[in-house]
Design a protein around this nucleic acid. Structure first.
Ligand SMILES: [Mn+2]
Ligand SMILES: [Mn+2]
Ligand SMILES: [Zn+2]
Ligand SMILES: [Zn+2]
Lengths: 138, 138
DNA sequence: ACTTGACTTAGACAAAGTCCAGTGTACGTT
DNA sequence: AACGTACACTGGACTTTGTCTAAGTCAAGT
């Protein structure tokens, strides 16, 4: 994360308290937070940070490839700081909790040319859904 | 689609003009419409149908397993009448157009137990992204 | 220290979706 | 065929998530 701030400065980022705080929030526990959750945690460290700045900063981090946008449920997008090791997601259909997973196989190779309809396919995203142990107990 | 209406009636659905119209819209061209697009097409056939009814009806069809919700982009959910043949999606990152695809292989088998974290995994959704031929030309 | 363009802010705005009270109607019963 | 009622529909208010803008602030090079 200090690495992250270094890298960003190297790319011409002006270093501000707000951006530092957002980066810290994301670099903390390795989770998948919504923009509002990021904002809530950022406010705890820097009370006057605005929603707009959190959205802006997250957007910039995504553009720079430092953070991934994940839309597993149909509600808010989630921001994933684990942008450097490719992975997929396992989502609890009930409580929405998300785990990183690393399936075997290569889904990209599983799409034959005849099923590409002339598209230039550049990316594949696999989402597993189920019930987490916690929700299964209830 | 007449089959659809039969099936629904069999499940205790009260048959109304509004529900018939929504079912007709979905049974038309086999596409992936947003709720508002469904509403627009439904209004063409039944001018006074309300947005709330379209949302309600779509939700019921999803619950009954007759229609699938697809959230490929981060914008509006799309409703997929192709609920009976399992398939995945190929999405244009630029214009958002969607094609049904049938990859080879079984992604479900590609998630080892050690990567399931105690979840009961019931479903997997694969989304390919790329640029469609139409957008590639521009 | 000064300057300046990049950054932040609050709040207005927009899109997608949910909820509710009041009204209407499909359909089983008579 | 008419009735009664539970279910369905409507319009509009409301919520959530996200974007945009004008005006003020500040990081960083000189
Ligand atoms: Mn992740
Ligand atoms: Mn489909
Ligand atoms: Zn759960
Ligand atoms: Zn396209």
């Amino acid at each position: 994360m200090s690495d992250l701030l270094e890298r960003l400065r190297g790319r011409g980022w002006r270093m501000t308290a707000q951006r530092r705080v957002v980066a810290e929030v994301l670099a903390g526990d390795h989770v998948h937070l919504t923009a509002d959750e990021v904002h809530a945690r950022a406010v705890a460290k820097l009370p006057e940070i605005s929603r707009a700045t959190v959205y802006n900063t997250l957007g910039e981090l995504v553009t720079l490839g430092e953070v991934l946008e994940v839309s597993t449920d149909k509600r808010a997008k989630r921001y994933d700081p684990n942008a450097h090791r490719p992975h997929h997601h396992l989502v609890c259909a009930q409580c929405g909790s998300i785990r990183d997973v690393h399936p075997t196989g290569n889904p990209m190779a599983d799409l034959p040319d005849s099923e590409r309809f002339g598209f230039t396919v550049s990316d594949v995203e696999v989402t597993y859904r189920g019930i987490c142990p916690n929700c299964a107990k209830a």
